[in-house]
Amino acid sequence: MCDTCGCGLPEEAKNHAHEHDHDPGHTHREEAVLYRNLLAANEAQARENREHLMEHGVLAVNLMSSPGAGKTSLIEAVVDSLSGKLRVGVIEGDLATDRDAERIRALGLPVWQITTGSTCHLDAAMVHEALHRLPLDSIDLLFVENVGNLVCPGLYDLGCHLNGVLLSVTEGDDKVAKYPVIFRYAQFFCITKSDLLPYVSFDSSKPQREARILKGDLKTFSLSAKGGEGVEAFLSYLLAERHALSS
């Protein structure tokens, strides 16, 4: 930092030699009122991602839930019942391992793994990077499996066409009101592991009702990736959305 001239910004100090010897003269304090949106850069990147996906005719679906609610299992179940009707690709967000990516690779699908380290959510820049690693022209439906978390993924638009929240019946039926941000951000809501309903006390009508109140046009599904119940209905929804994209 240059005390003489007061060019106190280290970035700049590096960039110019101090051959000048001007007098800084009188200075004063001033308040700069800005209210600059700190999510704007992410939002701009998300818009770019959306355009990029559109150009390639890819329907992108962001899956969000707390850890273990069944995101990867749902992708597997959908791929299974699609039986080739759409070509699927996957972006996997994971804190540390590539286990989920391995599961997708085992299905013979293109997958790109984003290891987020300690970051608790994916952002649009990470997805952008991943989009350039995938063969988008041979993908119709792209799943983006977000990091297991019900809070911040709702703040970071990824540029996907659809954002969905999964809630498994073992997590309790009181979660919707507790995590309003993510439900308001979503277009669909899946109650997962419905095959376990006989073993837990979970009133499916409660989260469905609460979610619809938070977001009037939220599509809701109840399904089991294990038994397959409800997967067809979810699949029809995806097919219709994919169809709407190309028409």
Partner: peptide, 11 residues
């Protein structure tokens, strides 16, 4: 938001 900054500026 970045709401505001208090800056020292030259007259």
């Amino acid at each position: 938001f970045l709401a505001s900054l208090e800056l020292e500026v030259a007259e």
